[in-house]
């Protein structure tokens, strides 16, 4: 057997996955906490205030990483969902449905912190412009994936339906990303790759560190949720019964 297939078979085995991720998760949490502490220290203590927006620019260190995560997680779900549907890999189905609540949480944070930023700067909590509207649609898509999974009794069937919705909904991702270019929006354009000076390095560093930190949050939270999903789905299987009798 070639090494790739061997790896897939091993990670695809629930007891193996359950045991190994159990060791990995505390490390992911630790890295998340350390990076968050550094990011917040740089963002709140070291970083200067903005020439136009004053102290509200500090909302960026939470808002922008959350918004990036909201899109990245959905993209992952679509890719994993596609592979899971074509090759029927159970572990990927589990990862798709375990990702959805984490993605929904980041989408909620992006929307709420955006609202808290919009009120003092733009003068409004909410507008129906293309960027804000498409991000709200993303939140509904996450809810849709979760609800679809819970609507079925048979977990494999449920995960396949949820995977399908993940793939279909991924069409919203380019709409969110390019909304600020395609249409007139109240939301400003991307700070990256434009002609302007973009984000000053002293503000960019805390932003990038926080953006890295939330990826470790996703990793730790996703694996925790995936382990729970495996326990639920396999509660009549031998390995779970062994696990239960080992614990005291």
């Amino acid at each position: 057997m070639n090494p790739i297939m061997l790896f897939i078979h091993k990670t695809g085995s629930p007891p193996w996955f359950y045991q190994k991720t159990g060791y990995l998760i505390p490390w992911l949490w630790a890295i998340f906490l350390v990076l968050t502490a550094i990011g917040l220290y740089l963002g709140f203590v070291k970083a200067p205030v903005d020439y136009q927006q004053g102290t509200t620019v500090r909302i960026m260190y939470l808002h922008v990483p959350s918004a990036w995560m909201s899109m990245m997680i959905y993209g992952f779900m679509a890719i994993m969902g596609f592979i899971a549907l074509v090759w029927r890999i159970r572990m990927l189905e589990v990862l798709v449905i375990s990702s959805a609540p984490v993605g929904a949480a980041f989408t909620m944070i992006a929307l709420l912190t955006g609202s808290m930023w919009g009120r003092p700067m733009w003068g409004t909590f909410w507008v129906w412009d293309a960027r804000l509207t498409s991000e709200l649609v993303l939140l509904f898509l996450y809810f849709g994936v979760i609800a679809l999974y819970n609507a079925y009794d048979e977990p494999r069937k449920a995960a396949r339906a949820a995977s399908l919705l993940s793939i279909v909904g991924a069409f919203n991702l380019p709409i969110i990303y390019f909304s600020v270019e395609w249409w007139n929006t109240l939301h400003q354009g991307s700070s990256f790759g434009g002609d302007g000076p973009g984000i000053h390095p002293e503000m960019l560093w805390p932003l990038l560190i926080m953006a890295t930190a939330v990826k470790f949050f996703y990793g730790a939270n996703l694996l925790t949720r995936a382990r729970l999903t495996l326990l639920k789905q396999d509660h009549r299987k031998r390995w779970v019964q062994d696990l239960v009798s080992e614990e005291h």
């Binding site: 205030v49 020439y51 927006q53 109240l186 700070s191 973009g198 984000i199 000053h200």
Partner: peptide, 20 residues
């Protein structure tokens, strides 16, 4: 009836903005 402010995608400290 309502006026909203739009800001740009550039973030920098005031001194840098002055210098620019």
């Amino acid at each position: 009836a309502e006026v909203l402010a739009k800001h740009d995608e550039n973030y920098m400290p005031p001194e840098v903005a002055d210098a620019l």
